[in-house]
Write a protein that binds this DNA or RNA. Structure first.
Lengths: 195, 195
DNA sequence: AAACTGACAAAAATTGAAATCTGTCATCCC
DNA sequence: GGGATGACAGATTTCAATTTTTGTCAGTTT
């Protein structure tokens, strides 16, 4: 029995909590319903399946990640080079911090992200668009060498995979990581600079 | 009963065959002994443990990979830029072909490589040394901008992870991969070129 | 005597019966 | 009537009993 009427948002929050506590393998719809104090049938009124519920969780999580990233880069009066460096650095440190602070939660979200690859793809497309905007700007201003901004943005994202793709999370604990990331950023900035 | 005396090399070959047929999870020392027509005790005369046997397999596999790569790049009279491009391209196409031709075998060796990370690390160190040699040459000749060759070599390997690290094997099937690799190579070559 | 075998204990994997979970829906409650 | 419930069938997971495998070594074979 609940005072408030049950809504999708509340269910997603409860699911996140159960995932945090029990991990992706041991999280059941019954557990979620128990946390909410309702029957599991009620959960199925708002989500057609367990998979849809999990997808809603990963979607919200990636939305938050995007928001955090936007906030970190929302800084005026930087050159395109500086903005690109800031964006990449923010992307890395954000992920590294999450993976380091709560490895199990990070692993959980990695499972969900793999499970719902279309949501992850959309997230990647968003990152790509942000990089592309900076690249277009840099070319327009004459700081960056001319070229297809879409291709360049993709190349930048690909070249930095080692530092932001969760598949590499285990390597991030190695102490040289920050210096290696710095070297790759320097290489990239040199590579796109106008001559 | 066997005519020839049993040696380590023969055992490793038999293990490779069993791994190829049954995969890493279902490969037992008993299976290997059966293929050889000996008792499993004989296998333990040559290898102290199942882990050591598997390590010998992955070590030999990576040795072959290194040999193939060396053969692909053993080409005289190229500029450092051309040699670097050739090395990277060879690294990519070699791995892509293996992953594409026999995905299950590739997955098997991925398991072994993860299991025996020190062997993989040595392989990476070897690749790094090859890149470094080219970078040093390029700096000496004046084609590449001055800098620490060790750091630069590492940055090049890191920046191309997406195209050679087996953790990304699933992405290699996507049709745009070759073009994306080409864009990253172009970015890198631009980045290290002397101004 | 050098190489191999196979019995053995401890560890790990497999199996299958029982318990739990997913998703549906007829029914109930406000 | 809109929202919630819980019984139910089929799918999936769990857990303990059983089988298989690993690694050793005393004894056998050549």
């Amino acid at each position: 029995m609940r005072a408030e009427p049950l809504d999708a948002e509340t269910i997603v929050s409860a699911t996140e909590e159960v995932l945090r506590r029990h991990g992706p393998d041991k999280t059941t719809v019954l557990d979620v319903a128990r946390v909410l104090g309702v029957s599991h049938g009620s959960v199925y009124r708002h989500f057609p399946s367990k998979a849809a519920l999990r997808e809603a969780v990963i979607r919200r999580w990636l939305d938050r990640v995007r928001e955090e990233l936007a906030a970190a880069v929302r800084d005026p009066g930087l050159t395109p080079s500086e903005r690109l460096r800031a964006l990449l650095t923010a992307m890395f440190t954000q992920k590294w911090a999450k993976a380091d602070n709560d490895p199990e939660l990070f692993a959980t979200f990695r499972v969900l992200a793999t499970e719902h690859s279309s949501v992850s793809s959309a997230h990647v497309a968003d990152l790509l668009a942000q990089i592309r905007a900076i690249v277009e700007d840099g070319i327009a201003v004459g700081d960056f060498a001319p070229g297809d901004p879409e291709v360049t943005a993709r190349a930048i994202l690909d070249a930095t995979s080692r530092f932001h793709n969760p598949a590499h999370a285990a390597e991030w604990r190695s102490p040289g990581t920050a210096a290696e990331a710095e070297a790759v950023i320097a290489l990239i900035l040199n590579g796109i600079r106008a001559r």
